[in-house]
Amino acid sequence: MTLLAVERIKLFSTRSPWWSMFLALGLTIGFAAMMALQSGPEFPLTLSMTQVGRQFGILVVLVMGVLTVTTEYRFGTIKATFQAVPNRTAALLAKTALIAVLALLIGETAAFGSWGVAQVVAPEADLAITTSEQWRMLVGLGPIFAGSAVLALAVGVLIRQTAGAVTLVIAWSMLVEGLVGMIPTIGEDIQNWMPFMMANHFLTGSAGDSSDMPLGPWGALAYFVAIAVGMLIIALITAHRRDA
């Protein structure tokens, strides 16, 4: 608990988490508002249309996850941290837990905020949340944001430099996973096992074009979380062994 409090003081005594939250929510919910504004009889608004802005949110959460640790390396505060808390695994786990919880809250707020804004802007649209799939799409955004933050943090610990780590996580989630599918014959099979494809599959389920996904939605979530945790473990072992 002490270490969590330490990381909380560290995180909220700089401005970047506030900017990250503001941007993640603003972009996601703003996009939902735009969708709702432009909808009408010809383009009826659906529940899943209110949620497409989540891509922006994931992007911001990835950057936030990287920054929480690369800024520490950049300014040397990671050394001050390890000097104060020689148990590096504990110090980094506390940081991870804090950022995961924060990302989870951002995710839930983004999902329900988008839904709420869409209802206000387009009250005539049918946006009722009735099926379990629909609930999963909204409530599920929190865990996906949390997993993304953990994944990004792990990459940050491994790479230690903001530019490199940010480029990697963004290029991976935005470009690599899409381009892999274009490789003939094996491309699509590989693509279906990509972590962010799995995350998307968990959120959209049968509503997405994911009929040939290898796992069900809950299996996809488990897979995504396992990748994030696996990366985290590699990062923790590396940080433990390496010179700070």
Binding site: L3, I9, K10, S13, T14, T71, F75, G76, T77, T81
Partner: peptide, 25 residues
Amino acid sequence: ALVEATWVHPNRSARAHLRWLARSN
């Protein structure tokens, strides 16, 4: 220890820097 004076986040106040260090121990 004072190894490098610059192990401080530039956007954090001096008090906040000392507060998290104090809390950790």
